[in-house]
């Protein structure tokens, strides 16, 4: 039996706050800032730890849906169709369920989508430009909201912004 992740994070935070921070001379502003940042990171990591796997799964699903939707309307010249074929390959390969491969699949899918968008800037049809714009904007609304909710405790969101709890967004 070992201490769980939350207990380990909490003990590190207390060490930094109670021992390390008071030992730094106040004129060492940079060092003080760095310790404060590390304490903050640890707090957020503690909050997110139990959700990371679900979060990545949700991100992966979102990208798969976007890729499939883009492929269903793709239309254009040689560059666009070649990029579409490559993206279809990534999508078809799927993911085998290991967390590491979920991350790798996310990277490959997002790269494939980027390449399709770039190629459509060269020879995509006007219809695909319009359709892909709408699809990406809709997907971005969901993705941005998920990410902003996931990182809300970092304090960058204004108080008047309404974000649902991340568990509601990722099905946790």
């Amino acid at each position: 039996m070992t201490p769980n992740v939350h207990d380990r994070i909490s003990s590190m935070q207390r060490t930094l706050m109670d021992i390390v921070l008071p030992a730094i001379p106040p004129e060492q502003g940079m060092a003080v800032e760095q310790v404060q940042l590390v304490i903050g990171h640890l707090a957020v990591l503690g909050e997110q730890f139990d959700l990371v796997h679900l979060f990545e799964r949700a991100e992966c699903r979102q990208l798969e849906e976007l890729a499939a939707a883009l492929l269903s309307v793709v239309d254009g010249g040689q560059n666009s169709m070649a990029a579409a074929q490559a993206l279809q390959g990534v999508l078809s390969a799927g993911v085998d369920g290991e967390a590491r491969n979920v991350r790798e699949h996310i990277v490959a899918l997002s790269r494939g989508i980027e390449q399709l968008v770039e190629a459509s800037g060269v020879d995509g049809s006007a219809r695909f430009i319009a359709a892909s714009t709408d699809l990406i904007l809709r997907s971005n609304e969901i993705t941005s909201q998920c990410n902003r909710s996931f990182f809300r405790s970092m304090g960058f969101e204004r108080g008047d912004v309404d974000l649902p709890p991340v568990r509601d967004l990722i099905g946790g």
């Binding site: 990208l63 976007l66 996310i106 990277v107 997002s110 790269r111 989508i113 980027e114 968008v117 770039e118 459509s120 800037g121 430009i129 892909s132 714009t133 990406i136 904007l137 997907s139 971005n140 993705t143 941005s144």
Partner: peptide
Amino acid sequence: QSVPIVALAER
């Protein structure tokens, strides 16, 4: 990691 909205903005 690539981001679809970034690619869209560039286009």
